[in-house]
Amino acid sequence: MVVALLAALTLALAVFALTGRRLLWGVIGVGVHALALAGVYLFLAAPDVALTQAAVGFGLVTFIYLLAVRRTGKLTVAAVETPHLLYQENERVTGLEWEILSRFGEQLHRDVEVMWVPRAEIPALLRVGDAEIGAGALFPREGETLLLSRPVLPTRIVTVRCGPGPVGAVAGDQGQDFLPPGGILYEDHTALAHALRRGEVGAAVADLLHVREWGLSGEVSVLDTKDEEETAFRFALSPAEAGLQGALDAFLDELARSGELDKLVRRHVG
């Protein structure tokens, strides 16, 4: 009877840990799961295994995970690659937003750590606190409750048509909001551009920065009718990070006032 309870607890902890979204809870869940498992070994007449499992599974494994995933002194940025704005060059990350973020990190005395993730996952990562800032994409999509910084670079949402066929967009991107019914979703802009070149889709909804980079000879029409200040690349933050948002906005304001932002935009975007 006790065994069945312990077994149910072990399994429940494992399922809780592995189906969760937050990494820290996953690590702790797996650690406690190992401790409950040691209890099950006691009932299986295996005290040696129980002792080893408790010492290794609960002690060493949990500690090594905690040491590996700790983020003390770091500013974690969940980002998608965008030309001119934030992209990888060899082993380095560079671009306009990178310049801003690294300067901001210097001001906060924190190392900036950019992690490339799928666009659709950024809101969840920000919400559970596995990342502090979202960057490189047009925030927010309809229905996303995120804190936003002041605009970094204004842009437009456009549709570019190169031939007959359905319309494609990037999943989670603002372009998805303008996708007509029957449109196809892709994971990122690279996949969308490939599909466009292969003729899988005849048209694509994206921001002007990406469309300009693709260098396609197609007819471009502006989709959004909002004023230019509305549609812009911004940084996104978790709703719980109001303090960080204030600091970032103040930093961006200072950058804009001193003319440094214009200089950076001219250098990176032209």
Binding site: A14, A17, L18, L23, G26, V27, V30, H33, A34, L37, V40, Y41, L44, A45, A46, V49, Q53, G57, V61, Y65, A68, V69
Partner: peptide, 24 residues
């Protein structure tokens, strides 16, 4: 990858428990 490693850890715990359960 980090989540994958967590899953691998749980799976190996299951394999170990399997052997111990066979010994019972």
């Amino acid at each position: 990858l980090i989540w994958k490693l967590l899953g691998l850890n749980v799976a190996s715990n299951g394999a170990i428990l399997f052997l111990v359960a066979l010994a019972h």
